[in-house]
Computed example of a mutant assay.
Amino acid sequence: MQEVTAKIMPRVDSHFIGKVHSVVDERTGVRLVTCEFTLANYQPVLYSELGIVMPESIARAVPKRQAEFLAGRYAAAMALQHLAPVVDRGLQVGIGEKRNPLWPNGVVGSISHVGTVAVCAVSHGTDKDYLGIDVEVLMSARVCREIAAIVANRQERELLKAHGLSDRVALTLIFSAKESLFKALYPSVKDYFGFEVAEACELRLNEHTLVLRLAERFAAKHNLPREYECQFTLGEHWIQVVTCGVFPGRISGAYFRG
C-alpha cells in the first residue's frame, strides 16, 4: 500500500492521526484510504485544524465518538482528493438522519472504523452505483454465542464452516458482509433493514468472495437484484469487507427502478 504524504492534508502537532495509507483495490477498483488514530491525543480543536466540520449531533457525543468520527472524515477527505475533478478540497462529507455519510454529488462512498483505525472507500458515481465497506475485529467466542442467531441462520454458518473457517471467523465474516451490504444499499433504498434480509449463499474462498442473497420480497419491493458479491480481506485479528457494483439497467451512470 502507498503511504499518503502530509502534502495532501494538514498534519498537527498533537499526533492524533498516525499512519495513513491509500490504495486502489485491485478487485473492486475503488479507492481505499486507511488511517490510524490515537484516542488519547484527541482534542475538539482538531476538527478546525484538520478542516473537518463537526456536526451538532457529534458535538453532543462522547469524546471517543468524536475522535472516531474525525478520523473517519479525515480518511474520507483524503480519499475524495483522489477523485478530482469531481470534488474539491473544501467539500465535506455530511451525516444523515441514520448517521449515514452524505457524499458529494458524483461520489459513492462508505466509512468504517474499529479500534484505532478508520477506513474509507470511494468511487466515482459513474463507475459504481453502490459501495459499502465494513471492518471488524474477530468476535470472541462469547460474543459469537450471544449474537449468532441474530446475524445468521445455521445453514449460513455451516456453509462457511464447511470451507474450514472457524466459528469466530465465519460469524464475523457474515456479520461484516451484511454490514457492508447495508451501507451499500441504504442510500438507494432508504430502508433500515436488518441481518435477516440477506443470506450468505456461496463462499468462493480462493477468490475471497462471499455472495449474499437478498430476500425475494425485499428485493422486489425495491426493484433490486438479489445477489451481491462481497470482497473480503482476512487479517490476523480482523476482517474487512467491500461490497460494490452497478445495478442492472444502468444508463450513463444512472439506473432505472421501474
Score class of each variant (00 low, 15 high):
Met1Phe: 05
Val4Met: 10
Val4Gly: 02
Ala6Ser: 14
Lys7Tyr: 05
Ile8Asn: 09
Met9Thr: 09
Arg11His: 06
Val12Cys: 12
Ser14Ile: 01
Gly18His: 06
Ser22Trp: 00
Val23Arg: 14
Glu26Gly: 10
Glu26Gln: 15
Thr28Ser: 11
Thr28Phe: 03
Gly29Asn: 11
Arg31Ser: 12
Arg31Gly: 02
Leu32Ile: 15
Val33Met: 06
Thr34Asn: 05
Thr34Gln: 12
Thr34Trp: 03
Thr34His: 01
Cys35Val: 07
Glu36Val: 03
Asn41Thr: 00
Tyr42His: 03
Gln43Leu: 05
Glu49Asp: 04
Gly51Cys: 05
Val53Cys: 13
Met54Arg: 14
Arg65Asp: 06
Glu68Asn: 01
Glu68Val: 01
Leu70Phe: 00
Ala71Gln: 05
Arg73Gln: 05
Ala75His: 02
Ala76Asn: 00
Ala76Tyr: 02
Ala77Gln: 14
Met78Val: 15
Gln81Trp: 03
Val86Leu: 15
Val87Lys: 02
Asp88Cys: 10
Asp88Arg: 11
Arg89Tyr: 12
Gln92Asn: 08
Gln92His: 04
Ile95Met: 11
Lys98Pro: 09
Lys98Thr: 10
Arg99Trp: 02
Leu102Ile: 13
Trp103Asp: 12
Pro104Ala: 07
Val108Met: 03
Val108Lys: 10
Val108Arg: 10
Ser110Ile: 09
Ser112Asn: 04
Val114Cys: 13
Val114Trp: 00
Thr116Pro: 04
Ala121Trp: 04
Val122Gly: 01
Thr126Arg: 14
Asp129Ser: 06
Asp129Met: 00
Tyr130Leu: 08
Leu131Gln: 05
Gly132Ala: 01
Asp134Met: 04
Glu136Val: 07
Glu136Ser: 11
Leu138Ala: 04
Met139Gly: 04
Ser140Ile: 03
Ala141Trp: 01
Val143Thr: 15
Val143Phe: 07
Cys144Gly: 15
Ile147Ser: 12
Ala148Tyr: 02
Ala149Glu: 15
Ile150Gly: 06
Arg154His: 07
Gln155Gly: 06
Glu156Val: 05
Lys161Pro: 00
Leu171Ile: 01
Leu173Pro: 00
Phe175Val: 08
Ser176Val: 02
Ser180Cys: 06
Leu181Cys: 05
Leu181Glu: 03
Leu185Ala: 01
Tyr186Ile: 01
Ser188Arg: 11
Asp191Cys: 13
Asp191Ala: 11
Asp191Ser: 12
Tyr192Trp: 14
Phe193Ser: 03
Phe193Glu: 06
Phe195Arg: 11
Glu196Asn: 10
Glu196Cys: 02
Glu199Phe: 04
Glu199Ser: 14
Ala200Asp: 07
Glu202Leu: 08
Glu202Asn: 10
Glu207Pro: 03
Thr209Ile: 15
Val211Arg: 12
Leu214Trp: 04
Glu216Met: 11
Phe218Tyr: 15
Ala219Trp: 07
Ala219Leu: 05
Ala219Pro: 04
Lys221Cys: 03
His222Gly: 06
Leu224Pro: 12
Leu224Asp: 08
Arg226Ala: 13
Cys230Trp: 04
Gln231Ser: 12
Gln231Met: 10
Phe232Asp: 13
Phe232Leu: 12
Thr233Gly: 09
Leu234Trp: 08
His237Trp: 02
His237Ala: 15
His237Lys: 13
Trp238His: 15
Val242Ala: 07
Thr243Ile: 08
Phe247Lys: 09
Pro248Val: 09
Gly249Val: 09
Gly253Pro: 06
Gly253Arg: 12
Gly253Cys: 06
Tyr255Asn: 13
Phe256Ser: 15
Phe256Arg: 14
